[in-house]
Write a protein that binds this DNA or RNA. Structure first.
Ligand SMILES: [Mn+2]
Ligand SMILES: [Mn+2]
Ligand SMILES: [Zn+2]
Ligand SMILES: [Zn+2]
Lengths: 145, 145
DNA sequence: ATTCAGTTGAAAATGATTGTCAAATACCCC
DNA sequence: GGGGTATTTGACAATCATTTTCAACTGAAT
């Protein structure tokens, strides 16, 4: 049974902590970029992020590099918008899945997806060693219905 | 409980039929491109498909246009390979999900994913009207373990 | 304060995707 | 089987997205 968390952005200091742990430097640019994702409940495509930051004087390569880094650190999660394009949302590291509104793009994350039994059955039937899954649910949020 | 189908490519004549129904012309190029996807159990990225067909004199724009068309018709399904890149596999139209080998890329499709109850629970907890989901399972095929 | 590996940004290089348009062709109707 | 026509194709150019390069800069450890 899924445990839903209404979407609230991960705490600001999480970047600081994760950088420490993983021996990566906490720079001004990384903080600004992470913050801008935290503030957008719909996430941004890389192109939108580049655009949003060149105004502030952050270089395009830095945006590309930082999005890749934050994704590796588990602080950004990649989702598909209604048009199938990649967008990124700020997220805590861990096993969460996005529920995405096809109309306004707002994202709610949820944790338990019920895939355990399905994976065991798949393993038994196919001989695959299952290592993980990607799951995304789409619909319309209450406001957009 | 998931019903697994070991991956066998959809029948050749399916393109013909789907084209008829949807009032789209069956061209030589479309047949060749669809066939080449049917023959690859791991699918191809668009770039690989372009490369494979320029040898045979099929233009690059045609490959792009055809992949988009076949995806719309439900004859190609987009998946993510181990590196997160988009690849396309030949597939029947309908509700199937890919189980992808992270090592060799081979794909097995399965049908029942157990998402019904999860979606009902999500709807109840979030107020979203659920419209669908994307699911992909990753692991290692028997040969690759 | 000093040091230095890690990070940044401008610019160029590369790669991927889309647009244009004249020529070719699938398929409908005789 | 042979036109007639809207669709489709392919060369090429234009555009857009991503990666590389490298000198200057800076976070953080000492
Ligand atoms: Mn994708
Ligand atoms: Mn899960
Ligand atoms: Zn909405
Ligand atoms: Zn394999």
């Amino acid at each position: 049974m899924p445990q839903t968390r209404s979407y609230e952005p991960p705490p600001r200091e999480m970047l600081r902590d994760v950088c420490r742990e993983s021996g990566v430097r906490l720079t001004n640019q990384r903080e600004q970029i992470w913050d801008s994702f935290r503030r957008k409940r719909r996430g941004m495509s890389i192109t939108e992020a580049v655009e949003a930051h060149e105004k502030r004087g952050i270089g395009l390569s830095t945006v590309y590099r930082t999005v890749a880094l934050l994704e590796e650190l588990g602080l950004l999660r990649r989702i598909h918008d209604h048009a199938g394009e990649h967008r990124y949302i700020a997220s805590r590291p861990g096993h969460f899945h996005p529920l995405v509104c096809r109309s306004c793009g707002v994202v709610v994350e949820f944790e338990s997806c019920g895939m355990g039994p399905v994976e065991r059955m798949l393993a038994a039937e196919t001989g695959f060693a299952i290592e993980g899954h990607d799951l995304e649910v789409h619909g319309r949020c209450p406001k957009c219905q």
